[in-house]
Amino acid sequence: MIRVSGVSKSIHKNQILKDVHFSVKNGTVTGLVGRNGAGKTTLLRMIAGILKPTNGEITVNDKNVFKQPSIKQNVVFVPDSADALKTYTISEIVMFYKEIYQFNEEYFNQLLEKFEFNKQGKIKHFSKGQKALFSLILAFSTNAKYILLDEPTDGLDVIIKKKILQFIAEEVAEKDVSVIISSHRLDELEKMADHIIVLKQGRVDSEIEMEELKSQYRKIQVAFETSLPNYIREQSEVLSESGRVAVLLIDSDDEKTDQLINDASPILYEDLPLTLEDIFIAKLGGELYVS
């Protein structure tokens, strides 16, 4: 388990993170969301043992990553660019990783073949998308228990983005690995994350269990002969409104509002699939979502 306890970090007298607490259980996917500058990358760099916290402690399997760095054999950090690897050839990086991690070369080669990688030449000759995918293949081939992904799909086209997200989902499903993904794209995270940590101005604004979350709310589309009655508006969160049609978010167990809607004889009343973005817009004013 990764445990972040009371971690704060100041850089150039700016407090980037303030008293951050959370833990990551084994075999889960944790989404770290927040706007640019919220402290996501700083937090991941601290978990990876790159930056020392100003206050607080970070442990992996109860071992402090700074005092017992060998525990980082179980932690692989994948930054948002593969620049650090660019001078290596694939065979060089494999040799290097075999010395550090319990690297599964056979599996690595299978993945390279699956994604049709050219095994010759240096990594710098790969396209941006290939570099991102290659970094992930490398990370998941290490057999590390914790993979930290910093904006893994940032700046990539939709096709490679889809490939990458699918690859991460498959790896997590097949292996007993925990993944922390930092992103400002809620739509990407909700498909695979079990647990969401929202960072806002350096603090953990909220923690959400995805399974609980979706059972807590309902997203409904309603339309009335006239406009949305004010007494219904007051009882729910209005996600959008266009003419006589409104999209509302209500608590799943809110029978009273449900009854009020039914009593108002709507000409349309249907449930819509709930997204993480809906909840953030409704509950947090949408400030965290940056497309």
Partner: peptide, 15 residues
């Protein structure tokens, strides 16, 4: 000067 610093510091070796 580069991302190599993060790469190096993230490795499981003491300073």
């Amino acid at each position: 000067n580069s991302k190599r610093h993060d790469f190096m510091m993230a490795l499981p070796f003491s300073r």
